Computed example of a mutant assay.
Amino acid sequence: MKILFNNKKEDLLSRLKKQEPAAQKIFYEQNVKRFLSVSKSYVSDIYQAEDCVIKAFCKIFKSIETFRSEGNLEGWARRIVVNECLNFIKSHKTVFYIDDINPAVLEEFHDEITDFDFNAQELLDQLPDAYRMVFNLYVIEGCSHQEISETLDISLAVSKTQLFRAKEKLRKIYFQQQKNLKNEYSEI
């Protein structure tokens, strides 16, 4: 059954705040693919990533009244998706952080390791969860190391270490893929 809206002035947000199923369906369809991509960048298993997205949409629709229109609705909802992924990872205790690199070394290599091109999702899927979470929060979400350390309940040094290691691992994976491609083409 298709629902028609009488008042054309009503926007999607006001309809969402009224808990209208048709508005929820529209919002879901507009954002599900993007949010699944976000979730997949944190949770490597597709089924677990889908579960996180479903739970996030439930939270979005349940708490839509708390959105104050101070920013972008999609950005607010994306933050809920990210938080749901982080909560999932924390609850499964599958992430271990290692703090054994001198943070001063990180600053030295920072500029060198930030500017390479890669197919993000394929490479991110190959990172350990701890690396991927810090990388996503820092690079994709734009969080500071202080925010990351508070969000993940880790030290500032561990946040910097994990980012450094993530970038190094991404670089190694990328160059290995390039080397493999070059070898495949030379055999043809």
Rank of each mutant, 00 (worst) to 15 (best):
M1C: 10
K2S: 07
I3C: 06
I3N: 07
F5V: 00
K8Q: 03
K9P: 08
D11R: 02
D11L: 02
L13Q: 00
S14I: 15
K17G: 05
K18Q: 14
K18C: 06
K18P: 01
Q19M: 14
E20C: 05
E20D: 14
A23T: 12
Q24T: 01
I26D: 04
F27Y: 12
Y28C: 04
K33T: 11
R34V: 02
F35M: 02
S37E: 06
V38I: 11
Y42N: 13
V43M: 06
V43F: 13
S44W: 05
D45P: 02
D45F: 12
D45K: 00
Y47P: 13
A49H: 00
A49W: 01
D51N: 14
D51R: 11
V53W: 08
K55M: 08
K55I: 09
A56H: 13
I60E: 01
K62T: 03
E65H: 12
E65C: 04
F67M: 01
N72Q: 05
R79A: 15
N83L: 10
N83G: 13
I89K: 07
I89R: 00
K90T: 09
S91W: 12
H92A: 11
K93R: 14
F96M: 14
D99E: 12
I101A: 04
E107D: 10
E108G: 13
F109I: 15
F109L: 10
F109Q: 10
F109K: 00
H110C: 07
D111L: 01
E112K: 08
E112Q: 13
E112G: 07
I113A: 09
I113W: 07
D115Q: 06
D115H: 14
F116P: 01
D117N: 11
Q121L: 12
E122F: 02
L124G: 10
D125V: 02
D125M: 05
L127M: 08
P128I: 02
D129A: 15
M133V: 15
M133D: 09
F135H: 04
N136C: 13
L137R: 13
V139P: 12
I140Q: 00
I140E: 14
C143G: 00
C143F: 12
H145S: 13
Q146Y: 06
T151H: 02
L152P: 06
D153E: 00
I154S: 11
A157I: 01
S159L: 11
R165Q: 09
K167Y: 08
K167D: 02
K169V: 12
L170C: 11
L170E: 13
R171M: 05
R171Q: 08
R171C: 01
I173P: 10
Y174N: 04
Q176G: 09
Q178G: 04
K179H: 08
K179V: 09
L181M: 12
L181K: 01
E184N: 05
Y185Q: 05
S186T: 10
E187Y: 03
E187W: 14
I188Y: 03
I188M: 13
